[in-house]
């Protein structure tokens, strides 16, 4: 059961997200994260979906997604690619020593401090899944108040890209 990342180009219309997300639960596939945004062409959105499953499941998911009329293209993003997630993490701080320690951790992870108050620091971190999990682990001992995370977005490196034929 590996984690796979699928890139989808879909028509930018209401209901498409519902159609795609629903397909996963209907067919019993596990969706880990999903991210959606408009592409450079306003008629087309790009979805990035990370899923857990074996090769056979991945093949079925891909075929079922391709059957959706509003899905224009589906391809697995694998081998040479860039993958990012973003997390906003609000951490409790008790004193200035605590605060500077948190800021040091942020530094190590090349994360940004985006908000500071007497009792909290909010950190913005981008990276792959492992990096984000790692910083969360480090910040846990300070007490995490809340976390907001995005799903994965990913692009192939180099010339390779998804285009509408």
């Amino acid at each position: 059961m590996g984690v796979h990342i699928l890139g989808l180009l879909v028509e930018n219309k209401p209901g498409v997200l519902n159609r795609v997300a629903g397909l996963f639960s209907r067919r019993g596939f596990n969706i880990s994260t999903i991210s959606v945004g408009m592409t450079e062409n306003p008629d087309i959105s790009r979805m990035t979906i990370s899923i857990k499953g074996d090769e056979k499941e991945l093949e079925q998911v891909t075929k079922q997604l391709n059957k959706q009329i509003e899905v224009i293209k589906v391809s697995e993003i694998s081998k040479d690619y860039v993958e990012r997630r973003l997390a906003l993490i609000k951490v409790n701080t008790s004193d200035s020593e605590d605060r500077s320690e948190i800021m040091q951790i942020a530094d190590v992870f090349r994360a940004n401090v985006v908000d500071v108050s007497k009792k909290n620091v909010t950190i913005e971190v981008t990276g792959d899944r492992d990096k984000i999990e790692a910083i969360i682990e480090m910040l846990k001992e300070h007490g995490i108040k809340e976390i907001a995370k995005t799903g994965t977005v990913a692009l192939n490196r180099g010339k390779k890209s998804m285009e509408v034929d």
């Binding site: 519902n18 629903g22 209907r26 009329i69």
Partner: peptide, 16 residues
């Protein structure tokens, strides 16, 4: 109706 029939149609469309 379109929500209900997504899984049982090849395609559906709500006109706006």
């Amino acid at each position: 109706t379109t929500g209900i029939t997504i899984p049982i149609t090849k395609h559906n469309q709500l006109l706006k």
